[in-house]
């Protein structure tokens, strides 16, 4: 875990403040929420981890913040996304183009396909730079070489003229990061940035992101299904299930005292190094599809504590301990599994 996880959340205004943010998905005549009234804050120089199974809405949430949800079928249904106090939700596409890549950047999961195959990597960095500033091409080129050096690419003067297909996955992800950081964004959204990479490269990329964060003060939203990565990188964690936040806590509190049965299940399904457990404990069942979510707590069909109340009433997200919020009727039970 990070050293600074124990410091209190700064009181200053958060860089990104997401409030009651919802994204709806239309399929035929049914409209179902895939992101349902999600609220969180990200502060300067801090990392927010978003965890959840496939299909829990974490990617839609990140695309929603950028206003890049594929529309139709998806649509931002409500809430606010405050970037330095300004709400982005009413912004037009043209206004968002000024924000994207400039003040909020994004890194995608698959480095093999997230670079345009027909241009050199230098051209793509320069393109990002010149989309948001009036640099000359010579200035942009030398800045591109600087950026490549900054993300740890050796021989950047030569690499700048390479085509993406000549580079390995790890190198491409470094270039994707260089592009994302080109304009010194306030917020960097990293959607599973290391999932497609092998473990040693994963560690290098995570190190790189951490050192870039401490240099630039960029706030990071790190989306992952890998709790190991989250424990390593995040200061605060949001656990999502079926489009809702079910637990929200500082990283040490979440891992020390997971309070929602789902979070406990996620942690129980990871092998431990001391390994005295015979078998891993999987969570039975799968995430319900958006059009078929149960009433009450969305997790109740898979939860061992579920009772009549869980099946009819949705638990609110409430602060149980200082800074640690949980949406469960049975936290008193859940806290001592």
């Amino acid at each position: 875990m990070n050293d600074d996880t124990n410091t209190a959340v700064p009181n200053a205004r958060p860089v990104l403040d997401v409030r009651d943010f919802s994204v709806d998905l239309t399929a035929g005549k049914t409209i179902s929420p895939i992101v349902d009234k999600v609220s969180f804050e990200v502060h300067e120089g801090r990392t927010l981890g978003i965890v959840g199974e496939s299909g829990c809405g974490k990617s839609m949430l990140s695309l929603g913040i950028m206003k890049l949800v594929p529309s139709p079928p998806a649509r931002i249904a409500g809430g606010q996304v405050l970037l330095d106090g300004t709400d982005l939700v009413p912004y037009s596409n043209g206004q968002m183009q000024e924000i994207r890549g400039n003040r909020i950047s994004m890194i995608f999961q698959e480095p093999m396909t997230s670079l345009n195959p027909v241009y050199t990597v230098g051209y793509q960095i320069i393109e990002a730079l010149r989309a948001h500033s009036s640099m000359t091409s010579a200035q942009a080129r030398s800045r591109a070489i600087d950026l490549l050096r900054q993300v740890g690419i050796s021989n950047p003067e030569k690499r700048v003229d390479e085509y993406p297909h000549r580079l390995s996955g790890g190198m491409r992800q470094r270039i994707v990061i260089a592009i994302a950081l080109a304009c010194n964004p306030r917020v960097l959204i990293a959607d599973e940035p290391t999932t497609a990479l092998d473990v040693t490269i994963q560690a290098q990329i995570l190190d790189l992101m951490r050192s870039l964060k401490s240099e630039s003060g960029t706030a990071i939203i790190l989306i992952s299904h890998d709790l190991g990565v989250i424990a390593e990188m995040a200061d605060d964690v949001v656990v999502m299930y079926a489009g809702r936040i079910i637990e929200q806590a500082p990283v040490h509190s979440l891992f020390a005292a997971p309070s929602h049965p789902y979070t406990q299940g996620l942690l129980a399904s990871i092998p431990t190094v001391d390994g005295d457990q015979e078998r891993l404990q999987p969570i039975p069942g799968t995430v319900p599809p958006p059009h078929d979510r149960p009433d009450g707590c969305a997790f109740n069909p898979r939860c061992r504590f579920s009772d009549a109340k869980c099946r009819t009433e949705r638990p609110p997200l409430e602060e149980k301990i200082s800074g640690h919020k949980v949406a469960c009727w049975h936290t008193d039970l859940g806290a001592q599994p």
């Binding site: 950028m66 890049l68 596409n93 968002m96 183009q97 000024e98 924000i99 994207r100 890549g101 400039n102 950047s105 994004m106 995608f108 999961q109 698959e110 396909t113 997230s114 670079l115 345009n116 195959p117 027909v118 241009y119 393109e127 990002a128 989309a131 948001h132 994707v176 592009i179 994302a180 080109a182």
Partner: peptide
């Protein structure tokens, strides 16, 4: 449907630039 088009959008390129430099050449 390729990721690099989403990346292009995510760096704030205008629609016309995306069409001309990302979609057409590919």
């Amino acid at each position: 449907a390729q990721d690099y088009v989403s990346s292009g959008r995510a760096i704030g390129l205008h629609d016309w630039t995306l069409l001309r430099r990302y979609v057409l050449p590919n």
